[in-house]
Every structure is written in structure tokens, then in C-alpha cells.
Amino acid sequence: MDFKVVIPARLGSTRLPRKVLREIAGKPLVRHVWEAARGSGAQQVVIATDDATVADAARQFGAEVWLTAATHQSGTDRVNEVARAAGWASDSIVVNLQGDEPLMPPALVREAAQLLTDDASADIATLAHPLHALEDWLNPNVVKLVMDRRGYALYFSRAPIPWRRDPVSVTKASAHMPASLAYRHIGLYAYRVGSLAQFSELPPSELEQCEALEQLRALTHGFRIRVGITDNPPPRGVDTEEDLSAVASLMVGR
């Protein structure tokens, strides 16, 4: 299987300044992400950034780096710029691996690419895992999704979905959670380069703006998103100082 990985790595971060260059276990955060991508079996791994400081740091540990425009609104647009500039074929597969996921298992990166390789009718592939904890299901920072019987995404939401209408007990939120249908979305995407280009040309949809979930733009415009289910979800990404400390502790424990 031939696929590529692009890691969008923006230096500016509101909640955690200079996030991608913060050190974990003696390495910048983005290096851990790059090493995970390299371990996935990808034929090419590119770090895409709009900042020369990030580019210089990445080149020092041997990464291929592309300097992209500073005007992009999302990492997806940054990935698209790399794909277009590199001249990748429209049927090539590229995985968008966010630059703040240092604990992403390489096997999941490959799994996302494999899903798209195996499904010619899909435009995008992503992953999810079963949700069991009520607090996660109710947490708006945990993105939930529902699928059709063939494994294609129907909807993504920050709300607890699906919601059991007639629970045994109406006084407990847990009674509304259908455990067999509750899934958490893993923010890892594989695209066909042609679909990625089409997606990047589309304006944000109302649903996307409402939920602040970019993947809803794809569903709004009829893209087919294939979802793979894993029982081995990645640990948390890094958005805050607390996350950074937690990830560092997990790495020390390995």
C-alpha cells in the first residue's frame, strides 16, 4: 500500500504557546508525531508549517519540511497546499496527522490509509472507538459520531449522540446512553488527493460553523466518509499544559 502523511504543525497556539516545539522526553512534540508517522510505513512524511522556526527545528532531526502559507484556516488546507505543490496524483492517498498527537499509534495511521485503499467508493476515511464512560459521552470536547450499517458516517457532533428517547429511568443521564451505539471520533483522516482538493475549495457549511467540526463540511456536500472501528484508541493529544504533563508522564512510563 502506497500512502503519504502530512503533519500540519502551526507554531501559534492560543491555549499552549509554541506547542509543537515544547519538549517531551527530550524531543520537540512534533518530532514524536513525525516518528509515529514514519513508523506507519508511509512512503513519504512531510511536516507542513508556516513558521521558519518550526521548519528549522524539524530539519535538524531529519524531517522533510514544506513551508506553507500563513493564511490557512485549518490543517486540512495546509495538507492540500502540500499535495498540490508536490503534484501528487488525484488518486494518491494522504493522511492528515495533526501535529499535536505525539502518542498516535503508527498502526492507526496505516489503518486509516488502508480503509481508503480498500474502499473505492469512499472519499475520506477516519477512525472511531466505542465509548463506555458517561463523562466522555457528555463532554462537548469529545466528538461523537453515528454511522450507517455499511460503516459510513452519518453525523458528527459535540452533543451526546445517539440519545435514547425512552430510558428506563428519566432521572439519570446514563439511561439515555446507548452503549452499543456510542462512538468517539478519532481526529485522523485519510484523503484521496482529488477529494482533498475539492473539499478545500468549498466554503464552510452552517453545520460546520455551528458545531465547529470541519468534517461536517464534507458530509454537507455529499462526501462519503468511511469509518473504521478500533478498540485501541490513541491517548490524549496536547492542547494544554495539563495535557503536556499527562503525555510526558505516559512516555516516561513506556
Rank of each mutant, 00 (worst) to 15 (best):
L115W: 03
N139P: 04
N139F: 05
I124T: 09
A120M: 10
V109T: 05
G151E: 05
N141K: 11
D100P: 08
A86L: 03
A125D: 08
D77K: 13
V143K: 04
G99M: 11
A153L: 04
R158C: 15
V94F: 07
P160H: 12
V109Y: 03
Q98W: 12
K144V: 07
L131P: 03
P160Y: 14
R158Q: 13
A83W: 06
E81A: 06
D123P: 08
W137A: 04
S74T: 11
K144M: 01
V95Y: 06
V95T: 12
A122I: 03
A120V: 07
V82E: 03
D148P: 06
V94R: 03
L115G: 08
R78G: 02
L138M: 15
L97P: 09
A83P: 11
V79A: 05
D148V: 02
A153N: 00
G75A: 09
A70S: 15
L116I: 06
L116Q: 04
S121E: 14
A128T: 10
G87E: 00
N141Y: 15
E101Q: 14
A86M: 10
T71R: 01
E101M: 15
S74C: 00
W163T: 05
A159P: 00
D77R: 11
L116Y: 08
T117S: 02
L116A: 08
T117F: 01
A159N: 11
A122V: 04
P162Q: 03
H72D: 09
T71N: 07
A86F: 05
Q98L: 14
K144A: 07
A86E: 04
D123V: 08
S121A: 11
S92P: 05
S157I: 12
R149N: 09
L138H: 08
R110A: 15
D100M: 09
A107F: 11
F156N: 14
R110K: 12
L127P: 04
D91P: 00
A83R: 03
Y152L: 09
I93Q: 03
T126M: 13
L154K: 12
E111W: 01
A70M: 07
M104P: 02
L108W: 12
M104A: 03
V146S: 10
S121G: 10
P105F: 08
S90E: 15
R78I: 14
M104T: 02
V95C: 11
P162D: 04
M104Q: 09
G75R: 02
A112D: 05
R84K: 13
I161C: 12
H129E: 14
L138W: 10
L103D: 12
V142F: 05
D136T: 06
S92Y: 08
D119W: 05
W163P: 01
I124E: 10
S121V: 06
D119R: 05
